[in-house]
Computed example of a mutant assay.
Amino acid sequence: MTLKPDFLVGDSDYQLGRELEVSSPEGELHLRFFIPSHQEFALLATGIREVIELSPDRITPIPNASPLLLGTLNLRGRVIWVADLGQFLGDATPLNTDRAEIPVIAIEEQETIVGLAVDSIGGMDWLLVQHLAAPTNIPDIAAPFLRGEWYSSTEGNSSLRLLDQTAILRSARWAG
């Protein structure tokens, strides 16, 4: 059991001196996001360095680089590659870069950082990894990067797919 901090307690509750109880989160914290084809994915929060929304002109295109890469970005004095995550996962719909801001998820393992450009951020959720099922109906190119998926019967049988950020960072697809 955890107690709600004072700044989350309504004035009347605070004046009466009551403490509100909230349940402890279960599972692990994940970031949910969407790629251009409106598929929803998640990444474990502990592997995410930061999430930024930036103007497309802050991404510098690199000639003769892999078509998966949008270019490079200066992230606090460090140059990192930025990739279209949907294209990396084999999605046919390219990321729309003709807009005011692009969400980029910077994932990190040891000394390697890559920025994953996505269509939109869905939020943070505590998810139980024990409820993961084997992924279904996925392109062969995406299979090595998926740890599983959660199904929701309450939201029209939609699914939320969990990505393996280590597999993404270590992929040989970056060289292609």
Rank of each mutant, 00 (worst) to 15 (best):
A133R: 15
V104E: 02
H131P: 00
P63N: 07
F88C: 05
P135T: 11
E101V: 14
Q130L: 07
P144L: 02
H30N: 14
Q87G: 08
I48Y: 03
M1K: 07
D57I: 10
A167Y: 11
I113M: 13
Y151T: 14
F145Y: 15
H38N: 12
K4F: 05
S120Y: 00
V104Y: 03
E108A: 11
L54Q: 05
A83V: 13
R78G: 02
W174F: 13
N64I: 09
D98E: 13
V129I: 15
N96G: 03
P56F: 07
L128M: 11
S37N: 15
D125H: 12
G176V: 11
L160M: 08
L31Y: 02
G123H: 03
L44R: 07
H38F: 11
D164G: 08
P56E: 05
P63C: 10
G123D: 03
H30A: 08
V129R: 13
T97E: 06
R76V: 07
P103A: 03
R76T: 07
D6S: 15
R99L: 10
L44N: 10
P56H: 06
A117P: 09
I121R: 01
I102H: 02
M124N: 00
F41W: 11
I48R: 01
V118Q: 01
E149F: 01
W150E: 02
L127Q: 10
G115F: 09
T46E: 10
